[in-house]
Design a protein around this nucleic acid. Sequence first.
DNA 1: ATAGGTTGTCGAAGCGCTTCGACTCCGTCG
DNA 2: CGACGGAGTCGAAGCGCTTCGACAACCTAT
Lengths: 337, 337
Amino acid sequence: MVTLAEVAQHAGVSASTVSYVLSGKRSISAGTRQRVEQSIQELGYHPNAGARALASSRSNIIALMVPLRTDMYVPVMMEIAIAVATSARTHGYDVLLLTGEEGPDAVRRVTGSGLADAMILMDVELDDERLPLLRGTDQPSVLIGLPADTSGLTCVDLDFGATGALCAEHLAMLGHRDIAVIGEAPAVYERHTGFAERTLDGLRSRSRELGLRVLHRPCEGGYDSMSLTLARIFDERPGTTGFVVQNESAVEPLLALLRQQSRAVPEDVSVIAICPDQVATQASVRLTSVAIPAQEMGRRAVEQLIAKLEGHGKDEVVLLAPELTVRASTGPAPATS
Amino acid sequence: MVTLAEVAQHAGVSASTVSYVLSGKRSISAGTRQRVEQSIQELGYHPNAGARALASSRSNIIALMVPLRTDMYVPVMMEIAIAVATSARTHGYDVLLLTGEEGPDAVRRVTGSGLADAMILMDVELDDERLPLLRGTDQPSVLIGLPADTSGLTCVDLDFGATGALCAEHLAMLGHRDIAVIGEAPAVYERHTGFAERTLDGLRSRSRELGLRVLHRPCEGGYDSMSLTLARIFDERPGTTGFVVQNESAVEPLLALLRQQSRAVPEDVSVIAICPDQVATQASVRLTSVAIPAQEMGRRAVEQLIAKLEGHGKDEVVLLAPELTVRASTGPAPATS
DNA sequence: ATAGGTTGTCGAAGCGCTTCGACTCCGTCG
DNA sequence: CGACGGAGTCGAAGCGCTTCGACAACCTAT
């Protein structure tokens, strides 16, 4: 293993000079810089991470806490994780992957040991038990998701309230009067992850303004569950012509069941999905959808974090504006019989 | 920040004693140990990761390199990643998330800087450019996936050859004669990730023995692509009654198209999927499938790695035996007309 | 010409931990 | 009863890096 000292010797300068060449924290003459860089190349020098962390008390590592559950939004999580890792690298940081399993202890461990300089938390619950810890430490952190009380925290998330409203507007504009929301699994609501409720709230209040009637039904996803849910919806509101689906694993079942019941999409019923674009475009009907901008969320979270690490960067809530893309699954409401 | 020295002072012992209590590398009297542990508790001490890494030249971090592509097998990747993180923790290691983006440079960076003690690579190509580097370093590594030349490497993977054979056997046993393989996207074959070829080889050679006729068609996934592929298959081999699908995003389209063409599953055609159990059980027909044991793969990879880090642990290829679960999508071949 | 700045470089002091050798204290064995 | 060895503890020497103050050399302004 090549050390700083060896590079220094090889270049005929002192160790501190090499360090300053690397960090750029003091001015170095062009000649010296070149000689040092040459030596670094020739010797294949890589600074030792541990030593660096010890001396500078900065690890250049960001911790990312992902939920342990692999039952929900998996592609979205993955995409966020990868976006986080990728953009962290462009800022010179590496990413440490923590699973939710350890819970608050992980936060303690990481902040206490200086393993990471900052952290990003995903899958935040409305009243997350990790929040007090975050507030109590001076280690910067960013949440992806929105807890009930955001004071003193920085959060990045899709504006799910606006998303719900957007769906309502689109369906209202097309003349639909009775719409149904196929929600996430009941467990998601019980866990109070928030985003599902926020979507619903936004959708409901905009619907009220627009005169839409809304029926909300959580749904586990999968065919059997969807079948049951759909039956109950048409039972209660036979005139339902618009669907908003916020559960990836219910999308395809819904389309199949509608087909089976000879309800044409979009002639008889319209469907809007809240899902990643990839899902919307790969479905059996190209779906009108509000995209979940996973990449952007990851990137923004990192940017916020870096800003905090660099000193400028305030606690703020960044809500990404939803965008509705019209594809082939929504159309004018059928003429009322 | 609490340091070792402060703990030592608080407990009335020397710093080295505290260190030995923590590491257990020398015997400590019960009384002293207790006093030290008490002090650690009271002061809320967490050893500094950087200092520890510097002094011991071990970071207790495992690097995990995931592919950058988010287009394929995402849930599987995620599940593996989480399994890796979780089991690494049980062995006292944390996981550093690297994306494939940096390529071989990431390997150099990590091994050179001592950021991680070992690494796990996913999505290994047959002739991966990172392999020479791995062979040339003494840092332990494990691959998830199988390159062409495994000499000097440790690999963990599902035995895709046996998987293919298993599919052939099951369909042959049910009396099918003409089967089609819906493969991964052409890009996967071009990239030579290997697993797709291995499946096909295993399936073909067993089919030869059993007298099955096999037609293989890569498929992008999605409805349009699947529709085209299916049409061509029935065109060329109208008597096809068995399908083996190795492309998650082709499963649902295939089922929908078969339904649309009034070919009943499993009465007219049988379908076997090679996919995670979750996909198999959530599909519109409960699918007979060979599971991709993501969790197990992650766990085994970590175990191999830990073994190497602890000194015992040889280069070996661990192939997990495939298991076929019969569900509702396969049945006896229809009587020949 | 002299005081005052710049600019570029160096030496040395740590950062918090691990680990090696040394030392003390006892119990044990010949 | 003295030599011996194990158990338990300590001191000190680093691990490889950053960073601070010092200093020489040079360049302006007065």
